[in-house]
């Protein structure tokens, strides 16, 4: 062990170690490639797309895949490939803020519930349970019916319904950690509550939550697609994977590639994020890292 230990490179960043670990795992590498492709194509969407994704061209409507239109065109003559790429941007625009927002709020509330006094814990748990008691889709339908469909509405609905999951996990982790000896040691060394929570508890909890988040992202993408499919997500001209599915569904006999073009990215994104999440789970824990 000592030999192996002294051979460890002198300065290797935490992120570097995690990336290396993910790349070693074939499924993790696959997840990383898929997620990377989606993220990069979403970031560079404006330059990648061959056509304006909302420009209609009635003359070329409902065409099959060709070199001019890689994935064909829809019933209004819009280029499907451009719409898929732009749809990825919408999917991430919903998933990332919603998940990170939910994670940040859930983490904070969960840690407070776990470390704070009992009455506060009870109050926060009551809050979490109240939110959890709403079925996500029904809750989304109700909110959309009230304030109208938009990207922001979807983000807020997803964030609100995900907070309890993160909050509960963070709380449980905090509860198990708060009586551990190293936290007692930290307190006996004169650390403030903010230092204990921020410096010592957080790194122990964040790994679990990051994995949970990576595994939650596909769910959110699917939810956004589902809401768009029902016409409750993003508004019509904006391309989204769910909207593509909806358009294609009506024309499935005439133009099946529309459904495929809308469905495939959802499947790929779900697989990619799930693989990445599972691979991350094994890598983030420094104790498990050594055994691999």
């Amino acid at each position: 062990m000592t030999v192996a230990a002294t051979n460890t490179p002198k300065s290797q960043s935490e992120l570097g170690i995690i990336l290396k670990g993910v790349c070693k795992d074939p499924l993790g590498l696959m997840g990383l490639i898929i997620v990377g492709t989606i993220v990069i194509s979403a970031l560079l969407a404006t330059w990648i797309v061959p056509y304006d994704p909302i420009a209609m061209n009635i003359k070329d409507r409902m065409q099959g895949p060709s070199f001019a239109h890689l994935l064909g065109t829809d019933q209004l003559g819009r280029d499907t490939f451009s719409r898929v790429i732009m749809g990825g941007r919408v999917a991430l625009k919903v998933a990332l803020p919603a998940i990170f927002g939910a994670m940040a709020i859930g983490l904070t509330l969960g840690m407070i519930a776990g470390y704070g006094p009992k009455w506060l814990d009870n109050l926060l748990m009551l809050f979490f349970d109240t939110i959890r008691s709403f079925p996500t889709v029904m809750f989304a339908l109700a909110v959309v019916a009230l304030v109208g469909p938009s990207l922001q509405t979807v983000v807020i609905v997803v964030m609100a319904t995900s907070i309890p999951t993160y909050g509960r996990v963070a709380r449980t982790q905090t509860l198990t950690l708060r009586n551990s000896e190293f936290i007692l040691a930290e307190r006996s060394m004169g650390a403030k509550m903010s230092r204990i929570l921020g410096v010592h508890m957080l790194p122990n909890i964040i790994g679990v939550l990051a994995v949970l988040a990576a595994m939650d992202i596909p769910g959110v993408i699917a939810l956004e697609a589902g809401l768009s499919f029902l016409g409750l997500g993003v508004k019509p001209p904006t391309p989204s994977w769910g909207a593509l599915l909806k358009d294609g569904y009506a024309l499935i006999r005439q133009t099946p590639w529309l459904v495929i073009a809308g469905g495939l990215p959802i499947i790929l994104a779900t697989l990619g994020f799930t693989f990445l999440g599972e691979s991350l789970r094994d890598v983030v824990d420094p104790k498990l890292r050594k055994n691999r």
């Binding site: 060394m189 004169g190 410096v199």
Partner: peptide, 24 residues
Amino acid sequence: IRSLRGSDISIVFQDPMQTHNPVI
């Protein structure tokens, strides 16, 4: 008392396997 802990008075605990934060 918190300003004394870890500056004027320190402590070494019984079980060395538990006294360090495992992820830092």
